[in-house]
């Protein structure tokens, strides 16, 4: 999985590209945690190029949501494809993470 990170107006945007399974989960979690500790107002995870997420990979998002809650910043995900969105819904993550159709929506533009 490829991970990129950029800052946009106080919000850090992380883009995941490829699969987020057991083998990629630790790296994804570390990137999310460091982005939350560095950000000023929030983190957006762009899932536009993420085509698979498993139980192990998904845990990185819960860790992110909890860390963001503790710091008092926003934590959002955007551009989920149908399969990834279905995994978020089954796991109830749509109840604790704000999901947006596009990156622009997530950034509030």
């Amino acid at each position: 999985m490829e991970i990129t990170k950029k800052e946009q107006g106080g919000i850090i945007v992380i883009s995941f590209c490829g699969r987020l399974g057991f083998d990629e989960a630790s790296e994804a979690q570390a990137v999310i945690e460091s982005a939350i500790s560095e950000c000023q107002s929030g983190v957006v995870v762009d899932c536009g190029s993420l085509d698979y997420v498993s139980s192990a990979g998904l845990r990185a998002f819960l860790v992110g949501a909890k860390a963001a809650e503790t710091k008092g910043v926003s934590f959002r995900a955007c551009a989920l494809d149908e399969n990834v969105e279905s995994v978020f819904t089954i796991s109830g993550f749509d109840r604790i993470i704000s999901l947006h159709a596009t990156l622009e929506d997530a950034l509030g533009q």
Binding site: S55, S91, G92, I96
Partner: peptide, 8 residues
């Protein structure tokens, strides 16, 4: 409840 894929 069940904030985990297996649990869901």
């Amino acid at each position: 409840s069940n904030l985990e894929l297996t649990a869901g």
